[in-house]
Amino acid sequence: MSATADVTRTILPENDSIHEIAPGKIAIWWFLASEIMVFGALMGVFVLFSFSHDFAADGAHVKWRLGAFNTLVLVTSSLTMIMALASARKHNLTQTRMFLLATVLLGFVFLGVKGFEYTTEIREGFTPATGMFWSFYFGMTGLHGLHVIGGIVVNLVLLVAALSRKPWDFLERRIEFAGLYWHFVDVVWIFLFPLLYLT
């Protein structure tokens, strides 16, 4: 989300509460709304299919302990992300950098564990072509994984920005928007985990 700072002229009609929202915030929520539709449609279809297909047998083969660990990783990364924002608001540069770095590293841990899961499953003979459950499993976690990668890239860019001492208002706003995205990816996982691992 690039050019939010560029619009400095916001002259608004009187008695209009919409101007209380930063334009960039509408933009990022707009983007998240479209993401809700994408992931929601996939999950909705998965739930519907689960009534007419036997997913339980295949579902028994996913590594729920690894999934639970990854949930912990992602939830913790949400905490570090929001702490990065809190630190930025306090103008504490060291903490901001530290928390951003922690978020990036936790993102990599998540991807590493996920990659290990994929490898194990494929070695056991479960590929996207194995059946309906595995189609959804690889499709949904893969799409989610791509979002994690995207989030890591964004956070790395912000980390570089924090290291090169960009102005605080620049950092604060961007960390907030990147955080909204990162927490959303976390929320998606909060639903994907029970959907694919626990039922």
């Binding site: 994408v38 996939l42 996207p128 072509a129 799409l143």
Partner: peptide, 19 residues
Amino acid sequence: GPLVAGAIMLLLDRVAGTS
């Protein structure tokens, strides 16, 4: 959104062997 989801599924059907 749902069509984006559908497009991903269609692409996976074509290139990744999903069904």
